[in-house]
Write a protein that binds this DNA or RNA. Structure first.
Lengths: 353, 353
DNA sequence: GTTTAGCACTCACAAGGTAAGAGTGCTAAA
DNA sequence: TTTAGCACTCTTACCTTGTGAGTGCTAAAC
C-alpha cells in the first residue's frame, strides 16, 4: 500500500509520532503540537489533518476526547518515509569500539557485551545469538584425563563453538592413550560434517574402533547434532531492567509477556532465522507478521557476520512506541562492529560495514 | 534470644504462618483460624494469644482492624522450631534424578538445569554458581590454528572450567608448531597455580620463550587471574517468571528490586562466599543480616560439592513469605544431587547426602 | 486464673456522585 | 481552505458514604 500524503500531513504525522515517543506514551493533542512546534496553522486545522490521518489508518484515538496515538501502520510509514536516519555520534561509536576492543580476544564475552551495549545504547531490551557457522563442522578434539576413569572431552567446532562433555570409562585411561586417540581423530575428522564423521574413521581395511573411541565418536556426533538446530535456544538477552521504567510496563502482566518473549523466544522464534538470511536491518512493528504475542512489541534485528559462513543475529525488542531512529542506528552499528570482529577472527573474507 | 512459648502459642503461630503463606499474603484473622483448623478455644482466646505473640515480636498488624502477619522474627522461629521438615516426595526425587541423569555428561548444562529445576520445585527464583575449585590450577592447554594468523587458545582448568581466547600473530602458524607448544606447556604447567606459572616455563639454563609462547602464557595468566575472584559474576538465575504471579510483585518496583538482586547480585554478594564455606542449608530471612535491599526477601542457600575442593552454591530467593519447608527441602535435595554429580566427576572423595 | 460472649471501635475498600480539565468534532463565518 | 467558538465526551481526581472485616476490651462464666 503506497500512501500519498501531502507534505503537511507528513509533517504532522512525524511530529505526532516523535512527540508520542518522547512524551512518553501520552496521547498527542492538536494544541500541544501547535504550541510546542509553533506550527503556522491553527489547532482546528491540525485537528482536521489529524482526523484525515486517522481515516487513513495511521493514527487512532483511545476515546473521543483523547489525543492521537500512532497505529502500527503509522509507525511503519514513519520508519519508511519520515524518520531522520542519523548514525550514532562519533563519540558513542568510539566508546562502543573501545569496549569491544577490550574483549576482542575473549570469544565467550562477545555476546554478553553486545547485548549489554545494545540494550544501553538503544534504551531497550537486546537479544543476541552467538555466532554460528551455517554448517556444523569438526575442528578439533581434546581428551583430558580428569580422574582415573573420567575423561573430559572438549570438542571445538569449525566456528569456534566449544562443547565440553565428560566420559566415564570402565578401565583407567592414561593421558598418553587419550592424546593419541585425540590426535587420530583430529587427523581423520578435520573439517568433517556430521554425516561424514562415521566414514572418516571406520575404514574397511583398518582395525575397528575401540569401545572407548566408539563412545567418544558417539558423543561428538550427538553434540554436533544438538548444535545444528540450536539457534533459538542460545538466545541471550539483556536490558530488561532498562525497560521496566517505561509506562508500558506499569502492570506486571506486560512484564510477564516480555519475559516469555525474551526467555522462551515466544514470538521471535521465526524472526531470527529470517534475519539470519536477510541483508540489512529488519524492522517488525507490532502484530505485522500476524504474531499475536507481539502485537504490542516491535523488533529490530540484523545479522552480523556473513550469510552462509559464520554469523549470528542481534537486535532490539521494545514496545511499539520505541525510538526507532536510535534503535535502528544502534542495531546497524553494533552489527557492523560484530561483523568486523568475526572477520578478524576468520580472515578477511568479510567486508567491513 | 531464646523464646519459651507455650504449646498453644506455638501451635497458633505455626498456623498463622502457614495460613499466611498459603492464603496467599492475606492477613490472618482469629475467626479464620478457628473455622479452618477447628481449634478448641474461642476466637477471643485466639485473639488474646495473637496479641501476646505480637508483644513478643513474632507477629504484626498493618492496622488495628487487620489480621496478623508474621515478622522476620516470626518466620525465624517458625523455621527453627515449628516447621515440618518433610523431604521431597520419592516421586519428585525420581523426576529430578532423571533430569540430571540425562545431562550428567554435559557439564555446561548442569547449572542451567539446576536453576530451572530448583525454581520449579521451590516455586521461586533460583540462583546457581558454577562449580569452581577453591584454587585455580592449570590443567590443559590447546592451541588451534583457526586461520593463518589467528589461533584459538582453549584453556582447561583443573576444575573443568574452560576459557577460550583468540590470539592474533604476526606470522602464520602451523598447527604442528602450535601442538608442540601446547604439549610443552602441558608438560610443564600441569597442576600449576597462578603464581607458579612463570617459574615452570622460564628456567635459567633453557632458551627463553618465543614471543608467541610468551603471549600465550600471558593470556593464560590473565584468564586464571580473572577466574580467581569471579564467583559472583558467574551467578546464573532462573524462575523469574515463576514469581511474578505472586501478590508481592503486583507493582513493578518490586520486580525491579528483584532483578537488581538476581542480575547484579546486589544484596546477595556477601551471602554466597559465606554459604560456600558453611555446612548445610543457610536461611536468611528478610533484613536479618542488615542488608536493606533484602528487607523483603529471604534467601536459602547451600553449597554443593566439597568445601576446599570443587564446589558451588545454589539457592532460592523469594519474598519473606515463602514456603520455607519446601524451599529448604528443594535446596537440600538438589545440592545433594549436584554433589553426587561432582563426586562422580572428580572421584569418590565426596560423600553422598 | 482462664476462657468466652458481647459489643464498641477502627480501618480498608468499594460504590457512587461530583467537579474539573483536557481535547475533540462540528458549525458557521472569515 | 482556514479558523474561531462552543457543545459534547470522556477521564481523572476527589470526596463522601456505607459496609464488612476484624480487633480490643470488658464483664461475666467457668
Amino acid at each position: 500500500m503506497i500512501l500519498e500524503l501531502t507534505e503537511r500531513r507528513q509533517r504532522i504525522l512525524k511530529l505526532v509520532i516523535q512527540e508520542y515517543i518522547e512524551s512518553p506514551a501520552k496521547p498527542v493533542a492538536s494544541e500541544t503540537l501547535l504550541k510546542k512546534y509553533q506550527l503556522q496553522y491553527s489547532s482546528a486545522t491540525i485537528r482536521n489533518e489529524l482526523a484525515a490521518l486517522e481515516d487513513l489508518g495511521l493514527l487512532t484515538h483511545l476515546h473521543t476526547s483523547a489525543g492521537r496515538i500512532p497505529t502500527d501502520a503509522g509507525y511503519r510509514y514513519f520508519v519508511e518515509n519520515l524518520m531522520d536516519r542519523q548514525a550514532l555520534s562519533p563519540q558513542e561509536q568510539r566508546t562502543i569500539q573501545h569496549q569491544f576492543y577490550q574483549v576482542r580476544s575473549e570469544l565467550d564475552q562477545w555476546i554478553h557485551l553486545a547485548a549489554a551495549v545494545l540494550a544501553r545504547t538503544a534504551h531497550n531490551a537486546a537479544v543476541v545469538t552467538p555466532p554460528r557457522a551455517y554448517e556444523v563442522r569438526f575442528k578439533h578434539l581434546e581428551l583430558i584425563a580428569i580422574y582415573e576413569t573420567v575423561v573430559l572431552l572438549v570438542l571445538v567446532l569449525h566456528d569456534g563453538t566449544i562443547k565440553q562433555q565428560s566420559l566415564t570409562t570402565e578401565q583407567p585411561n592414561s593421558q598418553e592413550d587419550l592424546s593419541n586417540l585425540a590426535q587420530y581423530f583430529n587427523q581423520r575428522l578435520e573439517g568433517a560434517t556430521l554425516d561424514l564423521l562415521e566414514g572418516r574413521v571406520t575404514v574397511p581395511d583398518e582395525p575397528p574402533l575401540t569401545p572407548f573411541a566408539r563412545m567418544a565418536l558417539d558423543v561428538i556426533a550427538r553434540a554436533m547434532r544438538q548444535l545444528e538446530g540450536q539457534i533459538n535456544e542460545a538466545l541471550h538477552h539483556d536490558g530488561l531492567l532498562e525497560m521496566l521504567g517505561q509506562p508500558e510496563f506499569a502492570q506486571v502482566d506486560r512484564v510477564k509477556q516480555l519475559l516469555r518473549i525474551l526467555e522462551q523466544g515466544v514470538g521471535i522464534g521465526t524472526l531470527i532465522p529470517q534475519a539470519l538470511n536477510s541483508e540489512g536491518v529488519q524492522v517488525v512493528i507490532g502484530g505485522e507478521h500476524g504474531q499475536d504475542t507481539m502485537r504490542e512489541y516491535s523488533v529490530i534485528l540484523s545479522r552480523y557476520g556473513r550469510s552462509g559462513e559464520v554469523a549470528g543475529v542481534l537486535g532490539v525488542i521494545g514496545p511499539t512506541r520505541m525510538p526507532y531512529p536510535r534503535s535502528i542506528s544502534s542495531v546497524r552499528y553494533i552489527s557492523s562492529v560484530m561483523s568486523d570482529l568475526l572477520a578478524e577472527l576468520y580472515g578477511e573474507r568479510s567486508s567491513s560495514a
